[in-house]
């Protein structure tokens, strides 16, 4: 565990979490939450949990982003908050 790398990724995680909740376009919110999942996967790989990391990359960053985009395309893209 390299603490500089750790701190950098954790700060980026907080930034992407806030951005994905602040942005007004739901498609952009889904994409930024995919970036959040990928950063989380990077952090877990760095912590030595490789099995958790590749599950998160496949399931968290890949599948759940696809689910979210599918739902947004079938419902509506605009939101007020």
């Amino acid at each position: 565990m390299i603490w500089q790398f750790d701190l950098y990724i954790l700060v980026l995680l907080v930034v992407t979490a806030i951005v994905s909740l602040r942005v007004r376009d739901l498609l952009s919110a889904a994409m930024v939450s995919g970036v959040y999942s990928l950063l989380m996967c990077l952090l877990w790989a760095e912590m030595g949990a490789v099995d958790v990391a590749f599950t998160e990359a496949a399931v968290g960053a890949g599948l759940s982003t696809v689910f979210m985009i599918a739902t947004i395309l079938r419902t509506t893209r605009r939101t007020t908050d």
Binding site: A17, S20, L26, A29, S33, Y36, T79, T80, D81
Partner: peptide, 17 residues
């Protein structure tokens, strides 16, 4: 506090991770 349901689910994902 988010009003949109997709935003609520994104919040749930952040909480879990």
């Amino acid at each position: 506090s988010k009003r949109n349901y997709v935003k609520k689910l994104i919040g749930m994902t952040i909480f879990q991770t």
